[in-house]
Design a protein around this nucleic acid. Sequence first.
DNA 1: GATACCATTTTGGTATACCAAGCCGGTATC
DNA 2: GATACCGGCTTGGTATACCAAAATGGTATC
Lengths: 221, 221
Amino acid sequence: MSQMQNVERQLREMILGLEIGPGERLTERWIETRFGASRTPVRAALLRLETEGLISRDGRGWMVAPINLAELGQIAVYREAVEVAAVRLTAALEDRSGIDVIAAMLDSCDAETPREEWHRVGMDFHIELARLSGNEFLLRAVRDAMTRLSRARWLEVRDEAALGRAWAEHHAILAAVRSGDAEEAARLLSAHIAGSRDRLVTSLHDDRRGLRARGFAVVAA
Amino acid sequence: MSQMQNVERQLREMILGLEIGPGERLTERWIETRFGASRTPVRAALLRLETEGLISRDGRGWMVAPINLAELGQIAVYREAVEVAAVRLTAALEDRSGIDVIAAMLDSCDAETPREEWHRVGMDFHIELARLSGNEFLLRAVRDAMTRLSRARWLEVRDEAALGRAWAEHHAILAAVRSGDAEEAARLLSAHIAGSRDRLVTSLHDDRRGLRARGFAVVAA
DNA sequence: GATACCATTTTGGTATACCAAGCCGGTATC
DNA sequence: GATACCGGCTTGGTATACCAAAATGGTATC
């Protein structure tokens, strides 16, 4: 694999894994020495990650994109539009057997499963559901939205009950799609996204002092 | 303005203006000499334009993205989802006076207006309508979809009647949004997009031999 | 005439040197 | 002590040299 892809992948993982905090300043020289690559692949990685919304310009320089509560609300509206469109397409397909693969993915999580895995599966559920639609642009949009939400969701304080509720809602959505009931699937998915948004924004808003104490830039709504 | 932005802007204009045909191969060295910049800003421009969908990788190299009829259909589904979501938000706003600015923009076109201007206004209508929603992500999605559709729409064979019909449909959509009737606006917009897609794909499909004769790569649906 | 093979050229990937703009710290002045 | 100024240092922007891989074109072989 090329250096360019290596730097991009590793830097993305560091940002998503909050090893570099939201709002932190980045210099091309630091990344260069940190990953043992020259500035050319580093710049390519920065340009790509900027379009993913993980990195912002800070004057002339670079910074890890801050968490922006207003933006999280807008992303929820955006993902509702594209996810609902995707699920309607999928519910109208003749072959909806892909649903079962997603259901199996959900069921691979239990009480023993580490939190990190729950997080990943929670995102992949939405991405894989969008993939079933067969529309590359809806898929890309959902993947993009999930990437932008990832760090915020990781910071969200979620209790066991919330995880279980999300799990149940995911299964209910799959059941509606499996039965071909597009309207029901759309309704359930909309409610799921709205609830997810409310819990997320509330949690981060309540926690914003603690998050800032950890050095994370959190922009209020 | 920096060289990076210059190269990006000029190259984008050449691609969108079909001065470089869909499917044409690009080399970094050619762009370098063509725009009098070095490879660093050239690579930055290529990376950005790749994310816009105007440039694709061709093996190890680069090419201007071909026109893909199947992709055009998928983009129509995508833009319907986001544009309808945006227009529903806008119809629910208290202050919908931005509508009048868009109406004035439409009215600035008449029989004397050059075709190029009709084309630009036809795209800007959808972009500005999405902007009124206030949602940055819906706006970005519509802008992205329009960029990807731009060359195909320019190649489309459109008669005077089709232009007039689109103009009337645009005004009808605005009227529905102005009156706050979200459902009617959504219905009109969906129909407009579906019709636009059908005419576009049909026109390009019928013309695909002629387009290929002009050296344009057109991938069938 | 078709094809397999080799030398040459071209091309993207990478590393690095140089530059100007901007940031930062120190200092002189009031 | 506050402030305005100045000089060095850091940083992104740019140009360019070098490399390996892939494309290219010519040639020998069948």
